[in-house]
Design a protein around this nucleic acid. Structure first.
Lengths: 216, 216, 216, 216
DNA sequence: CATGAATGAGTCTTCATTCAT
DNA sequence: AATGAATGAAGACTCATTCAT
């Protein structure tokens, strides 16, 4: 929660969020419910309790609003994953990975709309590839770091990094999406473990692998 | 197994596809390039070489067109995966899985637009969950069948089926997407193997697992 | 029922009405339910159980269909009123008028859609004034005849004929409409008498009139 | 009693009517000339000198515009009839009725389009029966009041109220329509008197009635 | 900063009519 | 005579954006 947008909230002592944030909140909610294109700026403004014109004072265009929202969410997600960074000395890479996974998944479950929004943009042709790259390198840099670490230790398969990153990203999104759709299953460790194991095992390097399969 | 839509093409001897198919083709192309919402029905019709009204003669609405397109693609994908069904006697489950994987991935690479379209719809709030279920059970029934088989053999982890299915689906989509974006990598077995291994290993059941990790 | 459209019904011995008549029937029904403009020719054809093209074989245009329908209905209404023409010797003009009124109203109640259709066209700017005149003079000539007769006898006020005709026409339409909307009231003579008396008294010529009012 | 829509005309000192009123005026004019269905919203906007969107800023739909227009006209008509309410002490009910009649007819002749519009809607299947009821009870309440009064005095026939109301309404519409079509006749008292007498006599109660007819 | 009426190009969809079969 | 796929102009309505207050 560190890099929270602190735009000099004009609300002074009051706890009411700034109009800008109200707009972002309203937008997120509506985008997820109805889709991005299907949501009119006027509707966002109404839901946020401001005038139509006000929206365009804070965001140059609808497109800019979408990108600001996207960036804010990615930032919050990274913050959440890094919130209580595990001691670097932690010798167990898996446990470390699980720590990040739990933090990120926990945040996702607490902010289902944010996750769904990310998902919506993921496959959109309007997706800003450059923005995505930035987010990954600036915010979620710990993911490639861990992968390299594990690979160097011989624990993880030495797979192409960019492919692996893409697969991890998609795996996380799919898992989070699943648990958001079935909230009661997010409380059962069977399901939670299974999702993480699926990812982790997929990354592992197994000398015994072939034997196991052939001698089934 | 060819459930190809054979709508008694009125072109008879001529090889020209039916207007309905022309519309579907044009729609797919434009949807992927510009996004679904950003594509006007009039533009689809023009690209298809028919009148605006013709589109609505064949599809009740833009929404119906989208669903018809989705269904057709899923059907073709299933057909492709089942095209040369491996001998049932095949004792190696992994090889069998790889066979399906290669067929499906091959089709995806040959039809990048179709894949991208599926991806676009995947996270859309307009997504018809019911249709998705139908597609999975009617067309891609071989996936759950294999998972159960492997689980019964003790080869695969006994994970919740619905979660596993969702993760496999997303993994396939992400992989295909990656190779479509980087076509030259789709010719290198390093990459191709890596993508499949990631999925397969994630599914495996390892008695030795914990030991391996702890004794790294 | 004399001038029924006898278009050489190709149905031969069968009792099924000709396609042309089926179209007219379907059109009437839909026009009344949804409005004329709101009813598509394709819908009429479907309801009539014929192809879209067939409609345009029998009627040059939608407009022509409407006019044909209008004419047919006016004809049937006139036929109904004249069905059992009272003996000319009938000395009581009021009884004679009531006879026509009852016949016409009876037909209207038996054909509510027909009446509503006439009503719809009554105030339409698309109304063909010429056609209306023709209908009045050719089919309902007995109305002006009676008015003149009554006026000559000194029984009816000598009011301008065209104004009186318009008022009678509108009175009949309004009455019929009322009884169609409230069918159970069409069985009570209180209501039926009241509607007719209202018209008839309005036409009467009263030397005693002013006195009655002033000395109330 | 002037329930005129006084929507705080933003024109301030300027005499230019609000855009909303401009739209209503343009709509009335075009509806009457071409018919309601035959008039495009874009055409209304153009005639009103505003953008297409502006129309839908003030009225949710074409349907809503029609209803707003209808309501405004009924209001103005009621205002006109009640403009110079006759002294309550007026002992002659007929003279009182004639007063209302003249006021209403005068307004109708001064606003022929308004009258024609009412007429068009009168028989439309799109007619909102509920709105009609409201208009009658809220705006034109003096009509049923007079009828009851006259009936209590024994002057008017004790006919069913709702039927009588419908007949009076239709009679007024037909009369107004007639005079609008033949404006020069609206200056001759022969015609004006005749129209009113027709209505009034139709309402009267005549003990001598039968005798008069039988002894013609 | 905030407002919300105004804009007009653009969207999806309808529908009377035609014509090859 | 009957069919129904095809047409494309036209319609109602939307919406991102601007601007005077």
């Amino acid at each position: 929660m560190t890099s929270q947008t602190m735009t000099a909230d004009p609300g002074l002592g009051k706890n009411r969020p700034s109009k800008k944030q109200q707009i972002l909140d309203a937008a997120l909610n509506l985008f997820v419910q109805q889709g991005i294109e299907a949501t009119a700026t006027a509707q966002i403004a109404k839901r946020a309790g401001v005038a139509t014109g006000t929206l365009f004072h804070h965001f140059a265009s609808k497109e800019a609003l979408i990108q600001a929202l996207y960036w804010q969410i990615k930032q919050q997600l990274a913050d959440a994953a890094l919130a209580a960074e595990p001691s670097k000395e932690e010798d167990d890479l898996k446990r470390q990975a699980r720590h990040y996974w739990d933090c990120a998944l926990g945040w996702a479950l607490a902010h289902p709309d944010a996750l769904k929004f990310i998902g919506q943009l993921y496959h959109s042709p309007a997706r800003d590839e450059h923005l995505e790259q930035q987010a990954m390198t600036q915010l979620l840099h710990f993911v490639p770091r861990m992968l390299e670490q594990g690979s160097a230790l011989g624990l993880l398969r030495s797979a192409p990094m960019d492919l692996t990153l893409a697969l991890c990203h998609s795996h996380f999104l799919a898992s989070a999406h699943y648990f958001i759709l079935h909230p009661q299953k997010a409380t059962q460790s069977t399901y939670l473990d299974s999702a993480f194991e699926h990812l982790w095992n997929g990354l592992l390097h197994f000398p015994l692998h072939e034997e196991l399969v052939l001698s089934h």
